[in-house]
């Protein structure tokens, strides 16, 4: 039995103060991700999936509920602890890459290690290793503007993984990529998951991207709607996903 890397229990998130007009973004969501899983979160716009990602990634605090990552309860942490926790246990990939464009790719990847106080001599081998895994050794000395979107996202993935995080959180990672680059990235993520044991949680509303996951949670109106597992091949799973989306009455939201 694998240990759970993420446990979310009865998480609520309410925006707006009491007495004002409040909006319930999350109305009691519970989920668990085991170590080594590749989980997708889907749902139409406004369903609360970004809010869920934000509270899990400690960028936002839940109003109520319990979140535990790698055995640590993050809801009780203070600001600095949260920042340190993010820099040590979490890896992020964003839709718009979020690379610092005034740093080289190498420096971008090295940043999380520098933040943890890893010495310069130990940083280099780690950066090169993760760059090799993602196939971006050639562009390490380039600046983000000098490389393609696909390369940027790989660089961002390298930065997310260089410090061996407990879980990789991906927010629409293929959103800014063309289909070829998107496919290549998804295959890389699958490889990371299957061959390097990286736990991944990916938020997306793209059924094709989602079909690479092993399990998908659907959210609607701030609540868990349903959950499907990939049992057959990816083509079948893709169809299955589309069916659920149609059921959600939000098929127009699918690209």
């Amino acid at each position: 039995m694998k240990a759970s890397v993420l446990e979310v229990r009865d998480v609520q998130k309410i925006y707006g103060n009491r007495g004002e007009s409040q909006s319930h973004a999350l109305k009691g969501v519970s989920l668990t991700i085991q170590e080594g899983e590749f989980v997708g979160i889907m749902g139409p716009s406004g369903s609360g999936k970004t809010t869920l990602l934000n509270v899990i990634s400690t960028l936002d605090r839940p109003t109520d509920g319990f979140i535990q990552i790698a055995g640590t309860d993050i809801t009780q942490m203070k600001q600095n602890q949260l920042a340190d926790f993010r820099s040590q246990k979490l890896g992020f990939i964003f839709q718009d890459f979020n690379l610092l464009e005034n740093l080289t790719v190498y420096e971008n990847i090295a940043l999380p290690l520098s933040l943890q106080g890893v010495s310069s001599s130990e940083i280099a081998p780690k950066v090169h290793k993760v760059a090799q895994t993602l196939g971006i050794q050639e562009i390490l000395q380039k600046y983000p503007v000098q490389i393609s979107g696909g390369q940027k996202q790989r660089a961002a993935a390298a930065r997310a993984l260089v410090h061996d995080p407990a879980i990789l959180l991906a927010d629409e990672p293929t959103g800014s990529l063309d289909s070829k680059n998107a496919k290549s990235l998804l295959e890389t993520m699958t490889d990371l998951n299957e061959n390097h044991g990286v736990s991944i949680m990916m938020v997306t509303h793209d059924a094709f991207s989602a079909s690479y996951c092993r399990r998908i949670l659907f959210i609607q109106d701030g609540k868990l709607y349903t959950e499907i597992h990939r049992t057959q091949d990816r083509q079948q799973f893709f169809k299955q996903i589309l069916d659920v989306l149609a059921e959600l009455g939000a098929s127009h939201d699918v690209r």
Partner: peptide
């Protein structure tokens, strides 16, 4: 602005 918000996301302490 974007740079700082990104740094915050990857876990840089406010004081840093």
């Amino acid at each position: 602005k974007d740079r700082y918000s990104m740094l915050r996301k990857i876990g840089v302490r406010q004081e840093w």
